[in-house]
Design a protein around this nucleic acid. Structure first.
Length: 816
RNA sequence: GCCGGAAUGGCGGAAUUGGUAUACGCGCACGACUCAAAAUCGUGUUCCUUUUAGGAUUGAGGGUUCGAUUCCCUCUUCCGGCACCA
């Protein structure tokens, strides 16, 4: 007798796997098909990982291990996204350097990951903070710069007053910075931008070629926010050289445009405002400038505004229409100005009511009456416009009107995106320095490729300053340099890249992590191609996942990568909530630490099974500590069964078709479930299988000679899920080679045939009986057996049989 | 408001070309072992009733069908995303 003791066997096998190198992928392996699988690139934070993080890696590891057994050359790498705010803020809080904070956090993460027994290819691991790596991040940035896709612009950016840095739109969630939850303000600073909007259409179209769940694709599409419309020019009265362009999706309502509204930040506001209105307008602009995005949104229904005193000509009616300023117009969308059509837009309608402006209906419903107390926002029939357009459907007029106005240069078709260019500068220390030198003569100049990397200097003071400059600006000997073109004294760019930079291309580096002459060898890029399966959290859908696709598409256009998209399939795992159904968080003290679970005696295998068995992988679900007891018991029961088998002195004599059937059934279920990533039911199938094995043991006391085969096969099936226990049992059953090198057993169809089957009998749709019959009976035979059954007879007496429906070997439905 | 997803026992969940609802696990109850407890093993466990049986039941209501957790319509609630987007 021996006891299942995970504390003893788990470290032993972890060491054995590391020594054997079985998890390492082989470049250019001609014998096996390659399979690249990625789990998210974690940023090492001081608090370590909780079991929610482990869900993703556990699922990945199960798949990687099974794929290896199926004969694939699996690349399953891991590394650390170590630049960025989490590490830096943690360092500041604990008064240590970001370098030290990162080192400690990585060591902790490494320890946690290793204790779970994940089969990562550690030989390919790296951190984004390694100069060998960020050299290439800088090099890739310069490809964007040289292609004109990285540019500087002075714009009002989202500014986090706590982190003292500008942010991208994607990093602002509900008006707050996603990292620290501080309310974001606006600040006008010169920023580096990446022209992601050039790829907006590609990012949408590319989704058609990818296997992403619809919730991810839909989210990306709605984030990009494509809308088709027109840009229309409005001339300003008494200001010959000035005009205001607006974007509209409803040019068919142009005749109903009775006023215009500009965003308070619109550049033309100052020029067009009349003397009389100057003071009032200035007031309004100042009051809206002090509001944060969050405050502006909270006054949603309030349609505040002020008249500029100026007028524009409606290009269709030639009427003079007043130009207003209103907070509800956003500078960041379209042109920051609108033609207001109060009769056909709810917001314009409210604004018109509030400020007593003219409302003119120019579209009426095809059927029914117009109501003059409501805006009519649907499609309909054009009216009250011009004889050319009246009585035509609004959808037809939409195109006609643009075509007509285009001839006179007053309009053009335009596609507008909600997506903005990516604000790429951070005024922080802990990031890749942007490899640009500002020369008084040549402006922004790229650092020469051979001078990369631009090393991040070590500093005394890395805390952010509030003047909108990175701490790097204070290091004179680093900042002051000479122009790479003319040699004139010049200044280095002092902003750094966002933490999303290094993660935008990291998967490519796994293909060739130690290359010092290129970001990756083209031959290796070609061999590994794309990521076959990428597991990750839903929260990255419009951040990392979108950014990263953009980088890859750009690199493809540059001829630097052979594939148009980085990730062929994406799956998002659900969040593991705390047992009380709330989110795990350090402040609530409800975080479950995997290390504690392992050390408490349950071990990594039971934890891996518990996380996986909890619910379908993509479902958000609360953690249940009791589930751990269940999966531990299951493993222990398997251990005990094997132990009893090894102790038994039974002479193995007879064949046992029951064992064959049982194990093949489990093999089929587990194989199919893994293919569909239905991990929880795969485990259920194995639990059922173990229950079955116990029943058969009770019957024959290991007398069948198939027991060795049955236990070995079961061990193989369980090994991706509980690798340590299975490795140990595999060896105890007398095998020398690691189980990870075995072939996936699958199943043989011939053992799955059944000789008899239970057939349900329904009468008028209600279950009335069950027949145990040999397989393959004809309808007449089954009906005859049913009629002979006394229970069924009882329900049929005095009734006439009207109809018989027979589903072979399954069900008989009688209608009386 | 718009776009996605979901709702099944005390709990997590299972069931897809429409065919025996509640697999598997947890919890609970009873029993065995034990001086006792834990652990382990065994049995039972959707609800109701007049319990050799009958009836109800997959968020609510309706429809299609011999038959609906599954398909269609209406509604409720919850989760995720977007949101004054012109």
């Amino acid at each position: 007798m021996s006891r299942y003791n995970p504390k003893e066997i788990e470290p032993k096998w972890q060491a054995a796997w590391a020594k054997s190198g079985i998890s390492e992928a082989k470049d250019f392996d001609p014998k096996r098909e390659k399979y690249v699988m990625l789990t998210e690139f974690p940023y090492p934070s001081g608090s370590g990982m909780h079991i929610g993080h482990m869900r993703e890696y556990t699922l990945g590891d199960i798949m990687a291990r099974q794929k290896r057994m199926l004969g694939y050359n699996v690349l399953f790498p891991m590394g650390y996204d170590a630049f960025g705010l989490p590490a830096e803020n943690y360092a500041i809080k604990n008064h240590i350097s970001p370098q030290q904070a990162t080192e400690e956090a990585v060591a902790n993460f490494q320890n946690q990951l290793e204790s779970m027994g994940f089969s990562f290819d550690w030989s390919r691991s790296f951190k984004t903070t390694d100069p060998d790596y960020y050299k290439w991040t800088q090099w890739l940035f310069l490809r964007f710069f040289k292609a004109g896709l990285a540019y500087q612009a002075e714009i009002a950016v989202n500014w986090c007053p706590f982190c003292k840095t500008g942010l991208s739109n994607e990093e602002v969630i509900n008006g707050r910075h996603e990292r620290c939850d501080t309310v974001v303000t606006k600040k006008l600073i010169k920023q580096w931008m990446l022209r992601i909007t050039d790829y907006a259409d590609r990012l949408i179209k590319g989704l058609d070629t990818l296997d992403y769940p619809s919730r991810i694709a839909d989210q990306q599409i709605s984030w990009i926010g494509k809308s088709q419309g027109a840009e229309i020019k409005f001339a300003i009265v008494d200001q010959k050289d000035l005009s205001i362009s607006v974007f509209t999706t409803r040019p068919d309502t142009l005749y109903g445009a009775t006023f215009m509204v500009l965003a308070p930040e619109h550049p033309l506001v100052e020029q067009i405002t009349t003397k009389e209105m100057k003071a009032e307008v200035k007031n309004y602009i100042e009051s809206s400038a002090t509001k944060s995005e969050l405050e502006r949104q909270s006054s949603e229904k309030n349609k505040s505004g002020v008249f500029t005193g100026a007028y524009a000509y409606n290009p269709a009616t030639k009427e003079k229409i007043p130009i207003w300023i209103g907070e509800y117009i956003l500078m960041g969308y379209g042109t920051g100005a609108i033609m207001a059509v109060p009769a056909h837009d709810e917001r314009d309608f409210e604004f018109a009511k509030e400020h007593h402006l003219k409302i003119k209906y120019v579209v009426k419903p095809a059927k029914g009456e117009l109501r003059d107390d409501l805006p009519f926002i649907n499609e309909g029939v054009v009216t009250n416009s011009s004889p050319k357009y009246d009585a035509l459907p609004s959808s037809t007029v939409r195109e006609k009107i643009v075509t007509d106005l285009t001839k006179s240069g007053q309009a053009k078709e335009r596609v507008n995106y909600r997506l903005h260019d990516w604000i790429f500068s951070r005024q922080r220390y802990w990031g890749e320095p942007i490899p640009i030198i500002h020369c008084p003569k040549h402006g922004a100049v790229a650092v020469k490729d051979e001078d990369l990397p631009v090393l991040l200097p070590e500093v005394e003071n890395y805390e952010p300053s509030s003047n909108g400059e990175s701490p790097l600006a204070a290091i004179k000997e680093w900042v002051n340099t000479s122009c790479p073109i003319c040699g004139l004294p010049s200044r280095r760019e002092t902003d750094t890249m966002p933490n999303w930079a290094g993660s935008s291309w990291y998967y490519l580096r796994y293909f060739d992590p130690h290359n010092s002459s290129a970001f990756a060898d083209p031959a290796k890029l070609k061999y590994w191609g794309s990521v076959d399966l990428y597991l990750g959290g839903m929260e990255h859908t419009t951040l990392h996942l979108l950014y990263s696709r953009f980088w890859h598409e750009f690199l493809f256009d540059q001829g630097l990568v052979p594939t148009p998209e980085p990730y062929l399939a994406r799956r998002g795992q659900g969040i593991v909530l705390a047992a009380d159904g709330t989110k795990m968080s350090k402040s609530k003290g409800n975080v479950v630490d995997p290390k504690e679970v392992i050390d408490s005696g349950y071990g990594a295998d039971a934890l891996r099974l518990a996380i996986t068995f909890l619910a379908p992988y993509d479902q958000t679900t609360p953690w249940s500590p009791e589930a751990l007891g269940g999966t531990y018991r299951f493993l222990q029961r398997f251990w005990t069964l094997v132990d009893q088998y090894l102790d038994s002195k039974a002479a193995a004599t007879k064949d046992d078709t029951e064992l064959k059937k049982l194990i093949n059934r489990v093999g089929k279920q587990v194989s199919q479930d893994l293919e569909q990533m239905s991990f929880n039911t795969a485990i259920a199938a194995m639990m059922e299988g173990l229950n079955g094995l116990y029943k058969l043991k009770a019957a024959d006391h290991f007398k069948s000679k198939d027991w060795q085969w049955a236990l070995e096969t079961f061990t193989k099936l369980l090994s991706p899920f509980a690798p340590h226990l299975c490795e140990e049992i595999w060896q105890r059953l007398g095998n020398k080679q690691l189980i990870q090198l075995e072939q996936w057993p699958g199943y043989e169809e011939r053992w799955l045939k059944q000789e008899s089957v239970s057939i349900a009998v329904q009468i008028n749709g209600k279950l009335r009986g069950e027949l145990n019959l040999a397989i393959g009976k004809s309808q007449d035979e089954v009906v005859a057996s049913a009629l002979a059954d006394p229970k069924i007879q009882a329900h049929l007496t005095g009734k006439e049989l009207k109809r018989v429906i027979y589903i072979p070997d399954k069900l008989l439905s009688l209608v009386v």
